[in-house]
């Protein structure tokens, strides 16, 4: 067996379906403004975990690229990022407060399975005061919005540099 085998190439990258921000610049500007105010005052580390988790649930490649890189650059551990995909089984990587936020993130992201259960809401309300909870809900709604832009326009992952949009 040769030690100089050619590496097997990856599948080709497809271009985005639509460069939506160029075609809807006023919407893009308004989204940037919304992003800046939603989640203001939330722990930035928690906010990044919430963004990664919602992006996993919604399968947003571009958003996972961005937020895992931002989280790593901000000092988040690789383990905590990877285990987000199975947070229910890896509770010992997160605080109770983070777990309540992740559970709320899942519920608000998957509304089609039936509302946001009382027990999920109440656990979150135990760990977050009312103002904080309102901010957390806004942050979850807004990453869900970015996920929809990313997935519907099939914006490819891999080109994000940490802090690029800060």
């Amino acid at each position: 067996m040769s030690t100089h085998e050619e590496p097997v190439p990856y599948a080709p990258e497809e271009p985005a379906r639509l460069r939506w921000a160029q075609h809807a610049p006023e919407v893009y500007k308004a989204m940037i403004q919304l992003d800046a105010v939603a989640g203001q005052g939330l722990d930035p580390r928690l906010r990044e975990l919430v963004k990664i988790r919602a992006s996993q649930v919604n399968h947003c490649a571009r958003c996972l690229d961005m937020h895992s890189k931002d989280a790593l650059a901000a000092g988040e551990s690789v383990e905590r990022i990877i285990q987000l995909g199975a947070w229910q089984e890896s509770r010992h990587f997160y605080t109770e407060k983070e777990l309540a936020a992740l559970e709320l993130t899942d519920a608000i992201t998957v509304l089609t399975d039936g509302f946001v259960p009382d027990e999920v809401y109440e656990r979150a309300a135990k760990h977050f005061d009312e103002a904080e909870l309102s901010r957390l809900i806004a942050a979850i709604a807004v990453i869900n919005a970015w996920n929809r832009f990313g997935v519907s326009t099939r914006t490819p992952a891999g080109h994000y540099h940490p802090g690029q949009h800060k």
Partner: peptide, 9 residues
């Protein structure tokens, strides 16, 4: 299309 996607979002 960009604005329709934005509205749905």
């Amino acid at each position: 299309l960009a604005h329709l996607i934005a509205l749905i979002t």
